[in-house]
Design a binder for these strands. Structure first.
Lengths: 241, 241
DNA sequence: TCAATTCATTGACATTTGTCAATCGGAAAA
DNA sequence: TTTTCCGATTGACAAATGTCAATGAATTGA
């Protein structure tokens, strides 16, 4: 059963999914690898399927692999004391999960959980170490990737600490539309609780802000479908704080 | 006048301060460089002195150098809309300021400002690129450094979003004692406003929490000197949130 | 010395945000 | 169909946090 699913997922690329499937040009850190290096990396990779809700990586376990998302949507979250969660960002097709304790303490500092069904590859971090050693361009790409994540987290930190709730919800909606779903009426597939966990507030508060936006005709909402009607207003609200 | 100061600062190491002066073993990302590589890196470095309060790096300017702190204390802060600041962390002797825009958009994503007098070296980022290409161990060290900063910021983000003010102030005090000043009665040299900006609250709120801690005999405060009397309690407050 | 400035502190109050409990509504199970 | 369950929503209220203004304390400069 599971093997079949994998074959389906990999229809175009057999066992080279981490290489050939990632063909968005600039965004692909594997572009710079030679065929031999690709072979090395892919040789012992595992292609794994997760159902919605399953945990892909668990905070505080040992970090011995990097993961490439081939298909689906997952959430990256930091688990705090007592059930408290903060969803840092969403990842989907072509995302590469690195960072966290990789290279340092070899411990994961966040949990990754499947939102929809997810197909992904697990690549042994030893392979990554070898590639960093043998291919300086690859090291460069990893540095870039890390820095991008760093900056994204910094912006997140600033937003969450310096803005009131409406500003944070506006930021979240713009993020979902422009960076994750790339569509306007979009289906988040996330519960209200999860959306609240992305903006650092309680579910009830989130719902109330959403309601305000609805009654101001800035958005329309139907279940987990959200339609942004007035992006300008959202931007204004985001800037105002 | 300025040249003299530089000479003073570099008394032990002439123009090789970024190499020889950094001798704490593991923490030094330059340890792995060969003599030739060090020469390359150091050849065109600039050693610069800043007075307290001066801006070392400014957010949104172009990022063409990395900076090594040789002496002194500086604060790294993100500037938000309308005077709002968030101090991300403090850096002192032997710290290396990289990350944020380096390798990507070449724009700084934070401001660095001297808290005390600061002596530091500016190294052209071209040199760093060359070293990443030629020395894979160095690339590795940079990746580690980046990841460490990433994790620190993540913990910060979780703390600030999930804890009430007393927990955040407790975290700040523990951070100052255990990671920055490494002493118990310590002199922060920071204003109340700055301390508040490190824990994401207003100055008035910060002062009130400090007062509570004082009247509970957890700390004693005299100006910018803070003495932690009961670290256990602080840890408890931090955990409780 | 005295005025002027800046930072720290305090109090009163308003606003924001969270908590708790109740209700609603749809989907799954019996 | 009916029941059950779970997520979404709402309201009332409490707690946390911010804002504003006044005061105090220390420092600087005239």
């Amino acid at each position: 059963m599971e093997p079949r699913r994998i074959e389906e997922a990999c229809a175009n690329c057999k066992d080279r999914c981490c290489a050939r499937c990632f063909n968005d040009g600039d965004d692909n850190i594997f572009n710079c690898l030679t065929t031999e290096e690709l072979e090395l990396m892919v040789k012992e990779k595992r292609h794994i399927h997760f159902n919605a809700g399953e945990t892909i990586l668990k905070q505080n376990t040992s970090a011995s692999h990097i993961v490439c998302i081939k298909r689906g949507l997952a959430k990256i979250m930091a688990e705090g004391e007592g059930d408290k969660k903060l969803i840092l960002r969403l990842v989907s097709t072509h995302a590469i999960l690195t960072g966290g304790g990789l290279f340092i303490d070899e411990v994961r500092h966040f949990t990754v959980q499947a939102v929809t069904e997810v197909d992904c590859c697990f690549i042994d971090s030893d392979k990554i170490y070898e590639l960093v050693s043998s291919n300086s361009q690859f090291a460069f790409e990893l540095l870039k990737l890390n820095n991008r994540q760093n900056i994204q987290m910094l912006n997140n930190l600033v937003g969450i600490t310096q803005k009131y709730m409406p500003g944070r919800v506006a930021d979240l909606l713009l993020y979902l539309k422009n960076e994750i779903f790339l569509a306007n009426p979009f289906n988040t597939r996330l519960s209200r609780q999860e959306l609240a966990d992305m903006s650092g507030m309680t579910m009830e508060s989130f719902i109330r802000i959403l309601k305000e936006f609805k009654s101001s005709n800035i958005i329309s909402v139907d279940g987990s479908n959200i339609h942004i009607l007035d992006e300008e207003s959202l931007i204004k609200i985001s800037k105002k704080g």
